[in-house]
């Protein structure tokens, strides 16, 4: 029910995967001495580096003695660290709940605001009262004129799921739509089923 950064993850994993793969294969080509024949095969006149050359020559060492090179290194490193931190923060799942609904947004006649949490609390209580439901949580997204309701319902193993969905759609969602005086733009329901093993200490009559 919570939203994750799936596309961001896949895009960056692909980009970094390609970079590392190319770098690793290039390193292997140089290390095994295959770079020169491979370059010749594609018409490039590359002669170095070869397997006997040093990884970093004297030029690299002297470059890192220059202040501007160190400064650029520091800036790039800070950018990489910030990107890593931003990517890490993006992994936290978010509910992206709607901002307070503005039921009346004309300052002249009066403003009426409604917290989505108030509505979702009512939705949750209504769903929990349905037969076979052990737990429920709800999130409202969108606007008061086109609300999106997403519900996670934990049902018991014996619950009639078709009847449960019918009740949620035709009663709970209809009541919410009536309260907001609009039609629900979208209704999403994720059903989880509780294992009876978790309630080994209880008995249902």
């Amino acid at each position: 029910m919570r939203q994750t950064a799936a596309r961001l993850n896949r895009a960056w994993l692909t980009v970094l995967g390609i970079l590392l793969l190319v770098a690793g294969l290039a390193g292997l080509l140089i290390s095994t001495g295959l770079l020169v024949p491979a370059a010749r095969a594609v018409g490039l006149a590359v002669t170095r580096p070869g397997p006997t050359d040093k990884l970093f020559g004297a030029a690299t060492a002297s470059a890192f003695g220059l202040t501007w090179v160190v400064l650029v290194t520091a800036i790039v490193a800070v950018i990489v660290a910030l990107l890593g931190l931003a990517w890490l923060i993006a992994q936290v799942p978010r509910s992206n709940e709607a901002k307070p609904f503005r039921l009346h947004d004309d300052a002249g006649t009066g403003l009426t605001r409604c917290e989505p949490g108030v509505l979702t609390d009512a939705v949750e209580e209504q769903i929990k009262a349905l037969p076979g439901v052990n737990n429920a949580s709800a999130v409202l997204r969108g606007s008061s004129s086109a609300p999106d309701l997403t519900v996670k319902v934990t049902a018991s193993e014996r619950a009639d799921l078709t009847r449960l969905l019918t009740s949620i759609q035709n009663t709970v969602a209809a009541d919410l739509a009536g309260a907001l005086d609009t039609k629900l733009n979208r209704l999403g329901v994720q059903v989880e089923v509780d294992s009876a093993k978790k309630h080994a200490g209880s008995i249902t009559v």
């Binding site: 086109a146 799921l161 969905l165 759609q169 035709n170 969602a173 209809a174 739509a177 039609k183 629900l184 733009n185 979208r186 209704l187 999403g188 329901v189 994720q190 059903v191 989880e192 089923v193």
Partner: peptide
């Protein structure tokens, strides 16, 4: 029920 789109999963 009058809902624009529905998305039901288990």
């Amino acid at each position: 029920g009058e809902v624009g789109q529905t998305d039901y999963v288990i």
